[in-house]
Design a protein around this nucleic acid. Structure first.
Length: 398
DNA sequence: TATGGGTTCCGCCAAG
DNA sequence: ACCTTGGCGGAACCCA
C-alpha cells in the first residue's frame, strides 16, 4: 500500500504522531510512504502519487477541502474540523482543558487566564477549562482574544500581548493553547519584567520537549498522546484498507499528563501555613511522615490545618497530598521503567494494587495501560479503554 | 465481593 | 460582638 503523509516537519506533536504511525506500520504492514507538507501545493503533489490512503495533520480548511473530495480513505490528526467528510483521530480537547484547570487548582491558583490561537476556531479546550474552573467556584477567566489580536499589525500585536499580560491580576495561572505560544508569552514576560512563575505561571500543550526546555524558564506542558494518536490513525487507515471502504469516524484520545517544569513551579496559595504544608508534602512524596508530624512542625492543630486547606484549596489535606503523590507516580510510570510495585513504594501508595486504583480513578487506565498510552517503553499496542467519567473528588458537596 | 479496624473528615461548641 | 482556634466524636472513607 502507498500511504501519503501530509505533515509539517519538526513540531513535537506531528513528530510524535509519525512515530506512532511507524510503530503500527513497521511491524504490521509494508506501507510505502510519501511525505509532504500539508499545503495546497503539497496536497496536489501527494495526490499525483496516486496513494491508496492519506494520513494528515492539519487544521487548514482549504487543504481538508481538497482531501474530502478524493475517493480514497483520509484520516486527519490535526485540529478538529467538524462537518468535514474525513475520518479523524484527535486529542480529546475537553479532557485537555479539564486537565489544565485541575492542575492549576491543585496548586492553589485562584486567578486564571487563557491565551488562544490567532483566528482561533470554536475552542473545546477553553470551554472545558472554564467549565472545570466554574465547577470549583472560579467563574472568571481572562481570555486573550484572537479577534483583538487580528486587528494589529505584527509589531503592534506584540505590544497588545505585553499589555494584556501586564494588566492581568497577579498571581495568575495562564493556560496557552500550544507550546510555541507559551514560549512567546514567556519572552514577553521577560521583556516586560514580569516574573515567571511567581506572577504568571505558564502551561502549554503538547510537551514539545526541545521548545519547552530551551525556554527561559523551562515551560510546563500537557503531554498529549501523540504516539497513540498516530498509532490509532494508522490502524484506522489499515481497517479501511481491509474493509475496502471507509466512513467518517472521529476518535478522541485523552492527554497523558502535565509535565511540570519551572514555569509552574510555584504554589500560589494565599496562606503561609497551607503553603508550608504543601512544601512539606512535596518534599515527602513517599509519605514517610504522618500528619501528626506535619501539625507538630507547623505548630498548629490538625483541625486548623484541615480548615485552612478547605478554605484555600477546596480540598482536604490528604486529598491534596494524594494528588501530589499521584502526579509523581504518573511521572515515574512515563519517564522510567521502574516496576509498578516500586513506583507505588516510592510514592507512598504501599503496593501496586493501591496505585492501580488511584491511576485508574484519575486516567481510566491501569498503570501498564497508562504507560502504553503515553508511548513509554516503545510498546504501543492495542488501545486502552477510554476514560468515561472522571469523578471530581473535591468533596465539596456535589 | 464482604468485613472490620484504622484513618480522615467535618459539624459543633467552648475558649481565646 | 466578632473571628479564629483546638478538641470532640459520629459519619464516611480507605485498605488489608
Amino acid at each position: 500500500m502507498r500511504v501519503a503523509l501530509g505533515f509539517f516537519a519538526h513540531t513535537g506533536y506531528s513528530d510524535g504522531v509519525l512515530r506512532g504511525v511507524a510503530a503500527f506500520a513497521r511491524p504490521h504492514r509494508q506501507w510505502v510512504f510519501d511525505r509532504v507538507a500539508p499545503t495546497l501545493a503539497g496536497a496536489q503533489r501527494l495526490l499525483n502519487q496516486a496513494p491508496d490512503g492519506v494520513l494528515l495533520c492539519t487544521s487548514d480548511e482549504r487543504v481538508l477541502e481538497v482531501f474530502e473530495r478524493v475517493k480514497i480513505p483520509v484520516v486527519n490528526t490535526g485540529a478538529p474540523a467538524p462537518g468535514r467528510r474525513v475520518a479523524q483521530v484527535l486529542n480529546d480537547e475537553a479532557a485537555v482543558g479539564e486537565m489544565a484547570a485541575r492542575y492549576f487548582i491543585a496548586r492553589g491558583y485562584r486567578q486564571f487566564a487563557y491565551a488562544s490561537r490567532v483566528g482561533g476556531h470554536p475552542d473545546a479546550r477553553l470551554t472545558a477549562f472554564q467549565a472545570t474552573l466554574a465547577k470549583q467556584g472560579f467563574s472568571r477567566c481572562a481570555v486573550f482574544e484572537s479577534a483583538r489580536e487580528r486587528e494589529f499589525t505584527p509589531s503592534e500585536r506584540r505590544i497588545g500581548l505585553s499589555q494584556w499580560l501586564r494588566e492581568l491580576p497577579k498571581p495568575v495561572a495562564l493556560f496557552c493553547m500550544y507550546d510555541a505560544q507559551a514560549s512567546t508569552v514567556a519572552e514577553h514576560c521577560r521583556a516586560a519584567g514580569i516574573a515567571v512563575p511567581a506572577e504568571i505561571a505558564i502551561l502549554g500543550v503538547d510537551n514539545d520537549i526541545t521548545g519547552c526546555s530551551l525556554a527561559d524558564p523551562p515551560l510546563s506542558s500537557i503531554q498529549t498522546a501523540a504516539e497513540r494518536i498516530g498509532y490509532e490513525a494508522a490502524q484506522l487507515l489499515d481497517r479501511y484498507f481491509s474493509e475496502g471502504g471507509w466512513q467518517v469516524r472521529t476518535l478522541k484520545v485523552p492527554p497523558v499528563r502535565v509535565v511540570s517544569r519551572r514555569s509552574t513551579d510555584a504554589v500560589a496559595v494565599p496562606d503561609k501555613l497551607v503553603e508550608a504544608a504543601l512544601r512539606m508534602m512535596q518534599a515527602d512524596l513517599a509519605r514517610t511522615s504522618s500528619f501528626e508530624t506535619f501539625c507538630e512542625r507547623l505548630k498548629c492543630s490538625r483541625r486548623s490545618l484541615e480548615r485552612r486547606f478547605q478554605s484555600v484549596m477546596s480540598q482536604s489535606p490528604s486529598h491534596a497530598w494524594a494528588g501530589l503523590r499521584l502526579h509523581e507516580a504518573e511521572r515515574l510510570l512515563v519517564e522510567t521503567d521502574l516496576a509498578v510495585e516500586e513506583v507505588a513504594r516510592r510514592t507512598g501508595f504501599g503496593d501496586s494494587r493501591q496505585l492501580a486504583a488511584a491511576v485508574r480513578k484519575s486516567t481510566g487506565m491501569v498503570p501498564s495501560q497508562f504507560r502504553r498510552h503515553a508511548g513509554a517503553a516503545g510498546a504501543l499496542r492495542p488501545a486502552p479503554p477510554k476514560s468515561p467519567s472522571r469523578q471530581s473528588r473535591s468533596g465539596s458537596g456535589e
